[in-house]
Amino acid sequence: MRSRELVLAVAVALIVAACAAPTASRLPERPRVGFGQPISEADLAAWNIDVRTPDGLGLPPGRGTVAQGKAVYEAKCVACHGPEAKGGSMYGTMVGGIGSFKTNARVLTPGSMYPYAPILFDYVRRAMPMDRPLTMTADEVYAVAAYILHLNGLVPADAVMDQSSLPKVQMPNRDGFIPDDRPDTSAVRCMRDCK
């Protein structure tokens, strides 16, 4: 190829490259139109089941006692979790473990692990019992929460749980969490005679 042709070919290649369809590794711009339909918070209330667990925002009206919770537990929970939540046919204990985290035999239970008591309400309502989640009444869920907290020694036998009292239960692991501080290693790329 003669030099003039080479220059021409390079120029054409550059122009083609410059005019090529845009490619982006980033996400594309939002189109000017949208297809969402407005809905009111009232119309989606049945789906709005989350509890903001540090302060209990989202806890519904209702109440339950430890004794009521024992009855609900024995009807709906005991088959998998065992008597007095000490472990059953499917799952391990939900009682104890407080103080175990500084050992290498950590026991993870709602009592030892949950930093905020409303987690019990949120999780039991959304996921339990496993064969019929989202079917328990608010009273039943408050009662089961009261019973599990009592078995863990965190509320007395006469405790009543509701949207006011549940967030006030002091959980032992409340200050047990630290934010992600990784990377926490600094390996080097040794190639020869390493270690």
Partner: peptide, 15 residues
């Protein structure tokens, strides 16, 4: 909190 957190040496959990 109770799941998908990582145990740390001083009894803490990385969240």
């Amino acid at each position: 909190t109770a799941r998908y957190t990582d145990p740390m040496p001083d009894g803490k959990w990385r969240q």
